[in-house]
Every structure is written in C-alpha cells, then in structure tokens.
C-alpha cells in the first residue's frame, strides 16, 4: 500500500527491562528539539504509545528512544532487534523545553524518566549552565544512562533505595542535599519519572519557589490535541499534555488526579499482558 515502515537501525539492552533503540525517522529528526516525544504504533492492530526522543541526528535522519517494558506494547517493542521495523512513528510532538540560563540546573530522572532528562542535561549545559544530574532507581540494576549522563553533565549522582549503587536514598533525598549547598545555589530543577517521585520533588522546592519543571506522562491517543484524553490540571486549568506540555510547572500540577487517571485501564492492561504471556507459552509448546 506504499506505507512506509520505520526501521530499527540499532538496539541495545540497558537493563533487564530497559532497552535503547535507534530508529530511522528522518522527518521526525529534522526539526526535533529537546523535550519532545513521538507516538509510535508497532503494527496494524497496535496501540499508539508516547515515548520521549532521547536523542536525534538530523544529518543521519535517526532518533533514539529508551523504553521500559511494563505492558503489552512496551514488552513487544523491547523484543524487537536491529533490522526489525515499526509500523508508525509520528512526531516530534509536544512543546520543546524552554532552555534558559539559570546558573546551576539540576535534572532529576527516575527510571526511564532519565530518558527525558538526558537530552535536557545536554541542552542545558550547551546553554552555559552548570548541570547536576540525579538518576535514581530502586536498585543498581534500575539505574540507567549513568555513563551517558556523565558525558553531558558537570556532576552525576546515582541513587538507589537499597544503597546497592551510589547514594543510598531517593532522588529527592539527594536533591535535598544539593539544595542545602549554599556554595552552588540551584537555579532550576527539571524532573521526569514516576508520578510520586515528581510530586516529592515538587514538594521539596515548593517553599523556596525554585523553578521546577516536571515532564508529565498521562495516557495519550492522538498526540495532536484532538481527543483531550491527555488532559491534566495545572494551576486549576485543564491542559492537554500532548500539545500544551508535556512539561509543566511542578508547583501547579494536580499530581493526585494524574496518578488516578493513569490507572483507568489497569484491568484491560493486565488482561492484555496475561493474554500475551499465555500465547507465548502456547507457541513455545
């Protein structure tokens, strides 16, 4: 039918359930800026899911994504290898991050949220900021992109809840330390990760009023502002995260509502994964 498929140029496992991909998508790469994402669909029957563009190259026409396998689509995607194809890749979507000179910029990533902060760290540093990056996970295995972050930041702090790697504690604990350092006052915080983590970070900076930008991850469908499914409450107003965001002022976001809305399809999501695992077992027999 003349439909163009999107080829996976390279793939690499970063952790047991986190995978990096380089995808041939010249139109997306062309005008892409940090903070933007894609929506992809694996096949004719697939769901449309949003993923941050971690890196892109306009000359060579590729984009890179980092994916955590948590449900049907991301598990399927993470089984793909170099040479495989993806049916649809649309983008770049969302408003690019406003890159400003703030002096000391702290980027905070939890889990694959690190995929979001990685391009930010790079852009913030290119803009002349001193960049501290905090990347955290429950345990050593789940801290991703630490080396990549080192290449684009001035200081990198890995944190684990169990102390198996780097600083023992949460990313919020580490941020609290940095905020206390009078030598290098923090100008702004950029944060992406699970909702409870973003809420904790926003709570930490609320009193001091330090600018805190969070990258929200509501459920999306079209990504063009047509359906309103991605709506979030920010400062008491309804915003569509796919076109107005995904980044917002963390002090204004209604995290409870976002957290709750993310659970809307939990039953169906579980059914889809169970069914997929059942099918895999049957096929293996």
């Amino acid at each position: 039918m003349g439909h163009r498929m999107f080829k996976i140029l390279d793939a690499k496992q970063l952790a047991s359930d986190v995978k990096w991909f380089r995808i041939d998508a010249p139109l997306v790469a062309k005008h892409r800026q940090p903070g933007q994402f894609i929506i992809l669909r694996l096949s004719e029957t697939g769901e449309r899911i949003p993923l941050t563009i971690a890196h892109s190259d306009n000359q060579q026409g590729f984009i890179e994504i980092i994916v955590k396998a948590i449900g049907k689509t991301t598990i399927e995607l993470c089984k793909k290898e170099k040479g495989d194809s993806i049916s649809d890749v649309m983008g770049p979507l969302g408003e690019p991050t406003e890159i400003e000179k703030v002096g000391h910029a702290v980027v905070v990533g939890g889990g694959v949220g690190t995929a979001v902060i990685y391009p930010l760290a790079r852009a913030l540093r290119e803009a002349g900021n001193y960049v501290s990056a905090i990347t955290g996970g429950r345990t050593k295995e789940l801290v991703v992109l630490e080396d990549d972050l080192k290449a684009v930041s001035d200081a990198v702090y890995a944190t684990t809840d169990d102390g198996s790697h780097g600083f023992k504690g949460t990313v919020a604990d580490k941020l609290r330390e940095l905020l206390a350092d009078k030598e290098r006052p923090v100008g702004a915080v950029y944060c992406a990760g699970p909702v409870p983590m973003m809420r904790a970070i926003a709570d930490l900076t609320r009193e001091s009023g330090i600018k805190t930008i969070v990258s929200l991850n509501p459920i999306m469908v079209d990504g063009t502002g047509m359906c309103g499914g991605c709506r979030v409450s920010v400062g008491g107003k309804t915003k569509f995260a796919c076109v107005d965001g995904p980044e917002f002022d963390g002090h204004e976001v209604d995290f409870d509502e976002l957290w709750d809305r993310l659970s809307a399809y939990r039953d169906q999501e579980k059914a889809a994964v169970d069914r997929m695992q059942h099918e895999c077992k049957c096929a293996a027999k």
Partner: peptide, 19 residues
C-alpha cells in the same frame, strides 16, 4: 488517489514535523 499519483505521507504533523 494513490493510483493517480498522489503521495500520502502519514504521521506528519504540520506545525511540528514541518511548519
């Protein structure tokens, strides 16, 4: 339309992919 030579590029959001 395709038979008439019209090219169709899906996944292209004008305002983002191109202005």
């Amino acid at each position: 339309l395709r038979e008439m030579g019209v090219k169709i590029i899906c996944n292209a959001v004008i305002g983002r992919t191109f202005t």
